[in-house]
Computed example of a mutant assay.
Amino acid sequence: MQNLAPIALFVYNRPQHTERTIKFLKQNNLAKESKLFIFSDGAKSKSEEENVAEVRAIINNVEGFKSVKVIERKENAGLANAVIEGVTKLINDYDQVIVFEDDLITSPHTLAYFNDALNRYRKEEKVMHIGAYMYPLKTDDLPQLFFYRAATSWGWATWGRAWKNFEPNIDTLIKQFDKKKKSLFSIEGKMNFWKQMLEFKKGKNNSWAIRWYASIFLKAGLTLNPSQSLVNNIGHDGTGVHSGINDIYNVIINPKPITDFPEIIEEDKKAYQTIKSFLTTRKGNMATRIKRFVREKLSQYFSK
């Protein structure tokens, strides 16, 4: 397979997560032939400096890829700015990119999946994003891969032709939504995507991912996704920027290579319904929700 996409890995202050992420990435079949670019954000405060230094000691000794380039920042840009800048840089140089953060473990076939998909749908304007994560859907009647509207941010890839549609300005995005679009965007109100948009505007989150999904949605774009996840997020232990401690999104990684790519470029209706019903019931009944809430609060209290 020619024309392998460069890998962007964004790291910050979690040495153990970073080490595991790299370990699994290195076990990918295409690791040795892939260029790896590691973007290391600067410390936010004095107290972060030690962890950032520890992360940098790890990333400056990475082997097992075609090449490894480490880009260290003196100041703290924050995850969103770091991702947007790093992705834009690699898109400008290579016209395609595979993106990971420091809390994702991959299947040995994840890089092959991304590169196959990038090559296969390179000229399909409608396909704008390739995702590697999928919710733990309780079903075995979905195809190996399907198209869907929303973009997942735990391991993804895209091309220059799609990334040029990324609109970072939240006001420009928000004013293009009417009532019907809001409903379609938020999977008929089953996922808090619209709420995330409004919270971004209020400064309550700094998500690049919600703006990227909105940019794709407003262009009527599609995202490619596996029905069984090719990554798992290990950041739900309270150490992440946006992750609470919860196990709703924990998945078993698909150990098999991906071979069946969809020919028809349209949203898979069955997959949409399956995801919608997962989102409807994902938080469980009231007793389960209360238990989880108490557990999260206690762990926050004890980790202080």
Rank of each mutant, 00 (worst) to 15 (best):
S107I: 10
T223R: 00
M191C: 05
I265F: 09
S207N: 14
V97H: 10
G238H: 07
F24S: 05
S303G: 03
E263S: 14
D260C: 10
M128R: 03
L298D: 04
K32S: 15
P108H: 07
T158M: 03
E124L: 05
E125Y: 05
N192R: 01
V241M: 10
D141P: 01
E263A: 15
D237C: 12
L90N: 04
Q2P: 11
E188K: 00
G42C: 08
N233V: 14
F10G: 03
E125L: 08
N169D: 15
F185A: 03
E188N: 06
S215I: 12
V241T: 14
T288W: 02
K164Q: 15
E72I: 13
W212K: 00
R161D: 15
I275L: 11
I84M: 04
T139C: 12
A157E: 04
K204T: 11
S243A: 15
R14E: 13
I59W: 05
T139M: 06
A77F: 15
N119P: 04
Y12S: 01
S107T: 12
F217I: 07
N92S: 13
A214C: 14
P168S: 07
L111F: 14
Y135F: 14
I265W: 06
L222M: 11
I91C: 05
F65M: 06
V11E: 01
F200C: 02
Q16L: 07
T21C: 13
I252M: 06
I275Q: 02
V294Q: 01
R56A: 06
I130V: 14
V87R: 01
Y94P: 06
K202P: 14
I275S: 03
V70C: 08
A271F: 07
P226C: 14
K256R: 09
G42V: 11
N254R: 06
S67F: 04
A117Y: 10
I58Q: 02
I58G: 03
N119E: 12
K46V: 15
S45F: 04
K256Q: 14
A132T: 07
S299I: 12
Y12G: 00
Q300M: 11
N233L: 09
K126D: 12
A82F: 05
N246D: 15
L218E: 12
H129I: 05
L222A: 10
V55L: 01
N28Q: 08
G131R: 00
I265C: 08
A151N: 03
E263Q: 11
I216W: 08
D41T: 03
N13A: 10
L79Y: 08
L279M: 10
W163M: 03
E33I: 12
E101C: 13
L79W: 03
Q144A: 06
F217Y: 07
L137P: 08
Q27S: 14
P255H: 07
N205G: 14
I265R: 00
A8C: 12
S67N: 01
R56M: 08
A117N: 05
M1H: 05
V294W: 05
W212C: 09
W159R: 00
K195I: 09
M197R: 00
F39L: 02
K219W: 11
L30A: 13
K304N: 12
E263R: 02
